[in-house]
Structure formats: structure tokens, C-alpha cells
Amino acid sequence: MDEHGGGQERQLFELGRLVKAGLTQPLGLMRPGGVGRILAVRSGEGDVERGLLEMGFVEGACIEVLHHGFLGRDPLAVRINQGMTVALRRGEANAVLVGPLLDQSTGAGSASRQEGPIS
């Protein structure tokens, strides 16, 4: 992890700024229609964290809350990077910290790429 040290420090700084400004919230508190970018995925139990990561909840991914259940607004249906939709309970969703969707977009969420050969 050492080679990413500098990047991580910057990320942590950025995270602290957003938290202080009150711009972050756990995914578990979001309502349908809410969008954002994942800032952190942390959970006490390693397996929940790994499970979330394996389903695509990873730092930097864009998410959109689409639906919730009819009892207690649980579970949530969340779309990741405009692709896969995942159902999860609010309990687990709280392990995901979401910040505002900044316009500089990365990864699979970006609109189009023009480089590379045509298949």
C-alpha cells in the first residue's frame, strides 16, 4: 500500500473536508432519487466490507438510490455506475459513506471514451 501513500493522504484530507462541511452521509440514510459518490467503505466485520466491495460498492463509484421496500423503507435498491443494480439492507448500507457527485467523473461512470481502436 506504500506506493499509494501520497494519494491516500490526499484522499483522507478531501474526506475530512467533506465530512466537516456536512456533505457526507451513510448510504443507509439516503432516499430514492438520491445520488452520490462513494467516499469510503468501512465496516467492523471484514466480511460485510468484502461483500460490499465484491458487489461493486467501492470508493469512487457513483451510486443512485432507486427504490426501497414497502415496510420500514427497507431494503434499498442501489444502482452502481449506471450499471448493475444491487439490493441491500439499510444496516449494511450504513457501512458505505457517500459524498456529493462531483462533476469530474472517473471510471465506468464516465459518459464516453473515444480513444482506442474500433472493434
Partner: peptide
């Protein structure tokens, strides 16, 4: 168990 389930198209 956590739910964590894909809703396929």
C-alpha cells in the same frame, strides 16, 4: 446474512 443481491435487468 446480509441481503446483498443483484437485481438483474
Amino acid at each position: 446474512q446480509p441481503l446483498l443481491m443483484e437485481l438483474p435487468s
